[in-house]
Design a protein around this nucleic acid. Sequence first.
RNA 1: GGUCCGGUAGCUCAGCUGGAUAGAGCAACUGCCUUCUAAGCAGUAGGUCAUGGGUUCGAAUCCCGUCCGGAUCACCA
Length: 613
Amino acid sequence: MYYLCRLKTISKKHDTMNLDTQLTPVVAEIINTLYGVQPVPETIQFQKTRKEFEGDITLVVFPFVKSAKKSPEQTAEMIGAKLLNDVDFIESYNVVKGFLNLKIKANYWLEQLKAIHSSENFGTTKPSKNADLMMIEYSSPNTNKPLHLGHIRNNLLGYSISEIQKANGWDIVKTNIVNDRGIHICKSMLAWQMFGNGETPESSGMKGDHLVGKYYVEFDKHYKAEIQELMLQGLSEEDAKKEAPLIKQAQEMLLKWEQGNKEIRTLWETMNGWVYAGFDETYKKLGVDFDKIYYESDTYTEGKSKVEEGLAKNIFYQREDGSVWADLTNDGLDEKLLLRADGTSVYMTQDIGTATIRYEEYPIKKMVYVVGNEQNYHFQVLSILLDKLGFEWGKDLVHFSYGMVELPEGKMKSREGTVVDADDLIAEMVETAHETSQELGKLDGLSDEEIENIARMVGLGALKYFILKVDPRKNMTFNPKESIDFNGNTGPFIQYTHARIKSVLRKAEEQGIDHSALRNTQLEISEKENYLIQLIAEFPNVVKQAGIEFSPALIANYIYDLVKEYNQFYHEFTILREENDDLRNLRLVISETIASVIKTGMGLLGIEVPERM
RNA sequence: GGUCCGGUAGCUCAGCUGGAUAGAGCAACUGCCUUCUAAGCAGUAGGUCAUGGGUUCGAAUCCCGUCCGGAUCACCA
């Protein structure tokens, strides 16, 4: 098992499509010819030429100066001359210190563009019929309170990484394990029984998950009061927490639930039903979904039997009180409880059960858990336990461990009411998007329905992009007042660029311009156009890298770079008014290809892009 | 205390498998709409890459120490 934060990758980040794989063997051959040594493949490193120098791709020659027994400049010069001679698409080279900058012929890039423009699903690999299956678990809510900002990050990451892996040829099953049982669920049930007066989502007009959450808070309030009372009577805080009537009643309720008490089960089903309806609404608004949902109430007993199996095989041991433990001291960890003395299961037991069932139901090649980094230890243990139990996939499970979302004043705390509610946040974003487009007068003349839809896309785009552009492993700060912007490195900026391109393309169509094929690939093109094509050509590598690193942020940052470059181009060049038809068509093809990369890339983040805004 | 993660502009973040003068956005200031959408573009200003060593031709990037922050080490989930 590994944390993604430790994942090392092999491929380079900024390589250009095919180019460095094409050139690497040539360089190896040249080094061999010139200096009589076979270079280690890793020492042949290409990078994108920095903007301040002339060229498209740069070979770092420092690794070869020893075997060349020459200065870096001389070495670079020799290799450059040979490359120019041997490779037909190299136009020229120049040497700066130990850097050999190669300029590639424009024609090479134009041919690339032509191929990209006429290809379908550029940048993504469709899963083949016998593709390996990756199961991705995300969301995994408790059914006692509504979703909040932390869940939003989880959901967006889970959904996006599923799309990204799909684009890398995996067969994906998105799954959700709903934590629908346990003492915390009983707390809200009990509070509702005692103080609810039969309130329902219908009678109160409240969303089901919010209603149940309200009673969870209610429980806590009364529970705390009872603890205070008992402490005044002289009990220690610890004892008071154990002896409070409410907690005892909740435990009693849990016991009844486990025994299948009809009344309790009915209440449980009713209240969970409210919560599910509420969650479905939030998921839908957020645009995330699942292929298969598991419920812990269905899987926890399977965990128990697996643990008992392990006990029988002496993998685990039992204490005098009857509790079952795993001794992980040989793995550098502690001892871990798996079954309580009364035979009830804990979190770990349930995860073992769920994993077992999943592997029975699906031919899983890779199992991914999208869960916060606060549970790193848990997954380390889970991996070892599954391995000990004889599951071959145990040690290979992936914990996609992501950082917490913090507010400017620190961690979100439900007890202090500083939690940012998911539904509220989404509504606010859409509302702001709506106001902004009205202020800008961009949507005049569109139907109310269209305006609503665009506001929804833009508001959600802002939120999603804001969260996904950050490296998932890192904690991030979310300032509700300031964080969400519609300018600069934001979702709306990218969506805007897409809409802008679409507008140009519509006008081209109105004028009857046919740019369906890039006919002339022998054009003189500007540096900006050249660079845009190179950026476009990098897209497939970015998708691949994002898959290897499990990082939607790579996609987000790439699209931003692309869009920023495009806007400069858009400002500097005319497209439709260009008098040279070939050049005009080239610019249309570049624009259209970029619009399509934006759409695909944003799609990998779960963000829609409008045709106009 | 043990283990793990992080510290880059005032703020939010890129860059980190070692490569050229560390980049964006926000906030501040200055320009650019009679021309394909100004949610845009151009510019000014802003840095001891926490800190001290080490490895290297070369370190924000790798190694070690220190400081600061966070997570975790539950018969919670």
